[in-house]
Amino acid sequence: MRKTNNVIKIKDFKVDKGLPFDQEYNFAYLDENTKKMIRRAIIKALCIPGYQVPFASREMPMPYGWGTGGVQVTASCLTKRDTLKIIDQGADDTTNAVSIRNFFKKTSNIKTTEITEKATLIQTRHRIPETPLKKKQIFVYQVPIPEPLAFLEPKVSETIKMHSLSEYGAMHVKLYEDISKNGHIETAYAYPVKTNDRYIMDPSPIPKFDNPKMNNSPAIQLFGAGREQRIYAIPPYTKVKSLDFEDYPFDPFKAEHACDICGSKNTYLDEIIVDDAGNKSFICSDTDFCNKRKNK
């Protein structure tokens, strides 16, 4: 690869594991102009909570659907002082988490961690950690479909109009359909929320169990959708309310079990089939939280 002026040379570096740091890349892979463009979109998104800001999404060295949006947001926010944590379905050791963590190790040589409290920047796929997020943390979601109205209205020109005029009545149709089919609101993930009493937003496919954690969170929450070329955000201490009916209030469902490893009763659990006889085990999806509890 040709060297440009933008390449940051870090002479003294250590690599603990994974791929070695590659100095040929610009810091965090993206070039500085792209980062500037993405930061502008992020700032606009933070000013209008829940509003989807279009941005010129770049081709990333990974397929769409693997977090290209989240990776671009992370790359644009990353500084050399940051400590990065990547989670995939709550776990630090699954394919998506490992490969994105290696990607940033290779291209930026920053510190990484699996411990939620120690991270300054966390990129996630499909979960919010059990350990509450805190001030000065940036939390980046990978988003496949940013448009919560897409289910009802396939025309983007029309959904933009519906957002700008707050025409959200039809949004409840999905919940109505759930109750009439199943007797309760079946939507278990990507459960739509209203941000700052204004924009209806898709919280990415996190379980609805995590929805209350977005409300009034001290951390900055950023959402990146690479294929759909949208960025949106929730600034710290912002009201985030899950949609519901007066007679069917929002219910952050979780499996009625305790974790088989750490015994936690109030965390989100994965259901795992453990043998050919169909026996099940329930364990925390947040591996960091579970390990800490187990070691106590």
Partner: peptide, 11 residues
Amino acid sequence: EKLMSVGYRHY
């Protein structure tokens, strides 16, 4: 849907 679009929120 018509009802929800004019503000009904009671299933």
